[in-house]
Design a protein around this nucleic acid. Structure first.
Lengths: 107, 107
DNA sequence: CAAAATACATAGTTATTCTATGGTATAGTA
DNA sequence: TACTATACCATAGAATAACTATGTATTTTG
């Protein structure tokens, strides 16, 4: 998967994996890998700053969890996050059908 | 249409409009507008540099045409351009189905 | 005649993702 | 035991793509 393809769509993908419940950063990477059958394998340098931004934007909320000695920052969708996810889903659908229209102007 | 959505997919869209024959820069903008039912209205500052790059990459070839006093730079797909278009179409299909898989892990 | 559309071009900005790096902890293995 | 892989967090800086803003000039339209 070429990296540039993701630009502008990564927020959607990351928000989407939270529909199954809270996740920590590394778990987001794993969830995307699983849901995409390994097509997506995002570097940590992409995911962590993104989670920080989504939290700054109020779409995610985080809390620290300690499992044994491991500390994890657990994120979950806020109400605004759910709304943003819904909006982004619609934007994706519109975008995908626009691309399709350009690719196949007849059909 | 949010601009960032296009990132990494614009080459595909621009190459695709050449399937109907040669076009000049402004014509590319018009063709994208028409094929997308006005969803795409790209600024010239996006399209002209992109055409230059695609030509540098050997995917488009250009020649000057003068219609009355108007000079136009007419672009068309090279053989490499057709191959690139084909490849990009497949990449788009793969990307779109990956997004779909992440959005709907069950179905 | 003024405004809008047509037509080309480029410099500089912005936003997003990536690479590279650095830290800690645990489990498996040579 | 040392090494390696994996899990987990984080940030600085690079790369890239598309955009805004600006400039020029011609043609059509209100």
């Amino acid at each position: 998967m070429r990296g540039e393809s993701l630009k502008g769509h990564l927020d959607l993908l990351v928000l989407a994996v939270f529909t199954d419940g809270p996740l920590h950063g590394y778990g987001v990477i794993r969830a995307l890998r699983q849901r995409s059958s390994a097509a997506l394998d995002l570097p940590e340098g992409t995911v962590y700053p993104l989670l920080h931004r989504l939290e700054r934007q109020g779409l995610l909320a985080s809390r620290w969890r300690s499992v044994e000695r491991r500390r994890r920052r657990l994120y979950s969708l806020t109400a605004a996050g759910w709304r943003a996810l819904d909006r982004r889903r619609k934007e994706w659908a519109a975008f995908a059908s626009t691309v399709q229209a350009v690719l196949e102007p007849s059909g």
